[in-house]
Design a protein around this nucleic acid. Structure first.
Lengths: 234, 234
DNA sequence: CCGCCTTAGTTATCGGCGTTAGTTTATCCT
DNA sequence: AGGATAAACTAACGCCGATAACTAAGGCGG
């Protein structure tokens, strides 16, 4: 990380003078360069704090204020960086589930989700492990749902319920529960990598298997059910 | 948040001169005042970024460098603040599970865990939704396990397995899975409070019920298993 | 070819941050 | 009384995100 192999064509030498201006329509190109440089800084350092406006500007070869011509503030830049990778998540989940019957599809989507999170830890942290207050305005619940292929998850759950494979529970709650399960594993692994975890894959498979088995149509259970109410409500 | 009711006896008026020195052994008292002020700032603003060393110093009535006499750096201060609240978590979980049989104890502990997280959102975020790199050195896996009453969780799981209530799975994996389940719900609710969640209690109970039912002693399952390996291993 | 407008960048600066070095002062012990 | 030391201070460094004001390079109508 200290030497400087030509890992990317981005870093310009200080070059003395000003940056050659882009042509009329080419402001877009600089935007892409900024995104690319910010992403490289983020994954290289593995730490959001290493991605400062100044560091990005230096990497691209411009001055800090120029970044504000393309992004309203730092949060928008960071989220745009993360969104780029995360736009691939839904496709990955869909292709993992492609052609599978509902229950297998749910497992495949869950695995793809965790895998993606572990492969893009910084982006996952920023998108799903931060308070939403810092999100740019275009990050709506609908956007989140789209990123996570929630529609496909929900459809698979509903089909599994309709065909009688799963119990007739509220498919929304079931879908959110599955999301919470895979998110729980992913975020704990990312937050505490030094914890003595067992095999990652085994843990994920355990979560999915347990969760799905608990949802299967079964003889009525007699498990523990203590029904004191909660304090906080939505 | 703008007016200044005497919410606490901490804030001193600028007072002109220096702070009256504490007596010889009383450095400890200032440490407590710093912790208290930092905690108040944290929960009042609901945002870690509002808790700057300078803001804490102002609130206590001292100058910023004085804080470093009691805390090595900002992270240690923040973690000490969070640890204070979190030291109550294990006791709450234990008292919730007190006298219950194993399965009911697991449910009670899970509920207590989520409730605690939702009641201390900033602390939960800092402790469980940040990368561990910023943790002070005294935050070991053992410390985390102690905070979360993992020993009691594990004991209840093992007992449930030994008595035949749960399947004979690895109790470590089962315990971590239960932790991941409740953490998944908690952290999603905290990260995305604007998401159209259903009733919190219902979601938590669904998670616990599903997870436990999936663990009950049952006819062997034939779930979907796609066995591509994961990328990262522990 | 010229002059204007727009766009894409610049320089300079502000206020805030965490942190450190060096200094002062009040209290305690002998 | 006087030195030692704990507990505070002042001043400053080098970052940070962000903004205001300026400048120069296209591109276009005449």
């Amino acid at each position: 990380m200290s030497d400087d192999p030509p890992t990317s064509a981005l870093r310009r030498p200080p070059e003395g003078g000003r940056r050659r201006r882009a042509r009329r329509g080419e402001g877009e190109r600089l935007r892409e360069e900024i995104l690319q440089a910010a992403e490289e800084l983020l994954v290289a350092a593995g730490d959001l704090s290493a991605v400062s406006i100044r560091a990005v500007a230096t990497a691209v070869g411009i001055t800090p204020p120029s970044i504000y011509l393309h992004f309203a503030d730092k949060d928008e830049l960071i989220w745009a960086v993360c969104d780029r990778q995360f736009s691939k998540l839904a496709a990955r989940m869909r292709s993992a589930a492609h052609g599978q019957e509902p229950l297998a599809a749910l497992t495949a989507m869950g695995r793809a989700y965790v895998r993606f999170g572990l492969e893009n830890p910084e982006q996952y942290r920023i998108i799903f492990m931060n308070r939403e207050e810092r999100e740019p305005p275009w990050v709506t619940p609908e956007h989140i749902a789209e990123l996570t292929a929630f529609g496909d998850l929900f459809a698979a759950v509903r089909e599994a319920i309709d065909t009688g494979a799963l119990r007739p529970l509220d498919p929304i709650v079931v879908s959110l529960g599955l999301w919470a399960a895979v998110h729980g594993v992913t975020s704990l692994l990312l937050a505490k990598p030094g914890f003595p975890w067992p095999d990652h894959q085994g843990l994920v498979d355990h979560m999915l298997r347990t969760q799905l088995e608990g949802l299967l149509r079964l003889p009525p259970h007699t498990g523990a059910s203590d029904d004191r109410p909660f304090s906080s409500e939505p």
